[in-house]
């Protein structure tokens, strides 16, 4: 099949960037999207030109490294799928596609389709420690966890931090990501001791990183490759709201 690509090319964060057109005449429908880009890049390297930079790692849909916009949709047209697990058979012969990086103030562009997502790592880090036993393994049933809660926590914990939610949101909000990270601990007994502090710190870090607010429209949920539900955002809101009003002055620490 023949595919025409319009790819965003940008040398570095300061470069203005722009689209470049690539004709791909021999695309196999069995290729993944990234394998198709590999072929384009081999051709570019053979011609002595710069290959298209894009993030990828496991190519199994579980690591969260890959991801860019394909014709206006984060991770492309197949729902619940990362770009690496999207196959060319989902497209038609003669399709013209537009590839763009995630666009958000919190995700500065590194090069072409790669963006710096360390803001998401800083949100997770701001959650702080979790009081769990780290000695010898404790008995499997020592801490009772209701099965529905374990399932919900696992659903939230599926978040791979790819950033598609931010990319799809008209406000570039990181609410779905942050709420998934807050939820998977808030739903478990092990997450209770620091629950309030975690909600406040992670929400404030999310705001400080320059992500927008949530308007409850659900675009994030539609593109999430792990199908995280916006019910988690409601849980984050509830936790933040309750924590903000329950909060008492803390004893000042010596440092920071």
């Amino acid at each position: 099949m023949r595919i025409t690509l319009n790819v965003w090319r940008q040398k570095n964060a300061r470069d203005a960037g722009g689209f470049e057109k690539y004709d791909c005449p021999n695309v196999s429908e069995d290729m993944s999207f990234l394998e198709m880009l590999d072929v384009v890049n081999e051709d570019l390297i053979a011609k002595g030109r710069d290959p298209i930079a894009f993030d990828h790692d496991c190519r199994e849909g579980i690591c969260g490294m890959c991801g860019f916009m394909i014709s206006g949709v984060a991770h492309g047209p197949e729902s619940g799928t990362t770009v690496c697990q999207l196959h060319m058979r989902k497209f038609k012969d003669g399709d013209e596609l537009w590839l763009e990086p995630w666009r958000a103030k919190g995700f500065p562009i590194i090069r072409d389709l790669t963006v710096d997502r360390s803001a998401l790592d800083r949100i997770v880090a701001s959650g702080g420690f979790v009081s769990v036993h780290t000695g010898s393994a404790i008995d499997g049933n020592a801490i009772p966890v209701p099965k529905p809660n374990a399932d919900l926590a696992m659903d939230a914990a599926q978040c791979i931090g790819c950033g598609a939610c931010v990319a799809a949101c008209p406000n570039a909000s990181a609410s779905l990501f942050t709420s998934a990270k807050i939820s998977h601990l808030a739903l478990l007994p092990q997450g209770q001791p620091e629950r309030d502090r975690r909600a406040i710190n992670m929400v404030e870090r999310m705001n400080a990183e320059g992500f927008g607010h949530c308007t409850n429209i659900g675009e994030c949920e539609a593109v999430c490759p792990k199908e995280i539900k916006i019910e988690n955002i409601a849980r984050m809101n509830r936790d933040y709201l309750c924590a903000s009003f329950k909060k008492r002055p803390e004893v000042k620490r010596v440092e920071d």
Binding site: G72, V73, W98, E100, S173, G218
Partner: peptide, 29 residues
Amino acid sequence: GLKRLSNEARPVQYKMHKHLQSTAASKNM
């Protein structure tokens, strides 16, 4: 205040951005 933050949160707009499930009501608040 929120609109100002939202405008700042995406300094460069997409050339193409499709909406998959949001309602017209929600996008025009």
